[in-house]
Amino acid sequence: MVPIPQYPLYSASIKLYGGTLVPYLLNESQGWALDMADLKESLEEARAEGRHVRGLVFINPGNPTGQCLSVENLQELIRFAHDEKIVLMADEDQRPFVSAKKVMFEMGEPFKSGVELLSFHTVSKGTGGECGLRGGYVEMTNIHPGALEQIYKCASINLCPNTIGQVAMSVLVNPPAPGDVSYQQYEDERNAELASLKRRAQMVTDAFNAMEGVTCNFTEGAMYAFPKVKLPPNAIAAAQAAGKAPDAFYCLKLLEATGISTVSGT
């Protein structure tokens, strides 16, 4: 199960490995909030069609929507995964955030030891945003030892990240601690980066919302803004005449007119 809108590598990877994507919709009118009713409906429909739903991924903060899930949302997801016997995959690349593992442990039993959780993080996102460096990890909680063994086998046949990527990952998971010489500088730089990202998020969303026919929810915790463009009837008719989806048609025309490359939401 994958949220819609989603990071497109999920749908691409699922197709590549012969899986089936089961979408669940985020609620744009509620700031791209999680809709548990739609989540349950999507699961029931998939099972009614004979699909064996094995996992559910959520992206927090959202990519490309930029919203942050509340503690209540995370608790709902954890209960859902526990009750439905589904592996929970937490895409938490855009830190800082409230981690699913922390919430799960605070909920106590039966969730603390009864939910299979995979938590993902990478050096290319978060406050540092070292997008040119490649390195990441998955933390596995309550995963069966036999499954862990198979995961390690698959990982062992891949090439490792380059040296600088590994160094960056080491710094990510071992930041300066209170009392270290560099701790205050680290905190000052990190807080300055967060403040700068917040200012830029406000600037971008304000600019989108000032445009005619464009609306955009505020970006709470990621490096993305996800605007909605309302196309006039004539533009939709022109797209249909050209045999293209309206949003794809808009992106192509924007590229031709301005040289700006965009990706359609659908």
Rank of each mutant, 00 (worst) to 15 (best):
P3Q: 04
S11V: 14
A12W: 11
I14T: 13
L16S: 09
Y17H: 14
G18M: 08
Y24F: 15
S29I: 10
G31D: 06
L34P: 03
L34S: 09
D35F: 06
A37Q: 11
D38P: 02
L43K: 10
E49V: 05
R54G: 12
G55A: 15
F58E: 07
Q67M: 14
Q67P: 13
C68N: 02
N73E: 12
L77W: 11
L77K: 12
R79W: 02
R79G: 11
D91R: 07
D91F: 08
D91G: 09
Q94A: 12
P96N: 03
F97R: 08
V98W: 04
A100W: 04
M104D: 05
E106V: 05
M107F: 01
P110Q: 07
S119L: 03
S119T: 15
K125L: 11
T127I: 09
G129W: 00
G132W: 07
G135D: 09
G135S: 15
H144E: 10
G146M: 08
G146Y: 12
A147H: 14
K153S: 11
C154V: 08
C154Y: 04
N158P: 03
C160E: 12
P161K: 00
I164V: 14
G165C: 05
A168C: 11
A168T: 11
L172C: 09
N174P: 10
N174E: 08
N174M: 08
G179I: 10
G179S: 06
V181K: 05
Q185V: 07
Y186C: 06
E189M: 07
S196E: 08
R199K: 03
R200E: 08
A201N: 01
Q202L: 02
D206V: 03
A207F: 04
N209Y: 04
G213W: 00
V214T: 06
T215G: 07
F218S: 04
E220S: 01
Y224K: 01
Y224W: 01
Y224C: 03
V229A: 01
N234T: 09
I236M: 06
A241H: 04
K244S: 05
P246M: 00
C251F: 07
L252V: 14
L252D: 15
L255N: 11
E256L: 12
A257S: 15
T258G: 12
T258M: 06
I260H: 03
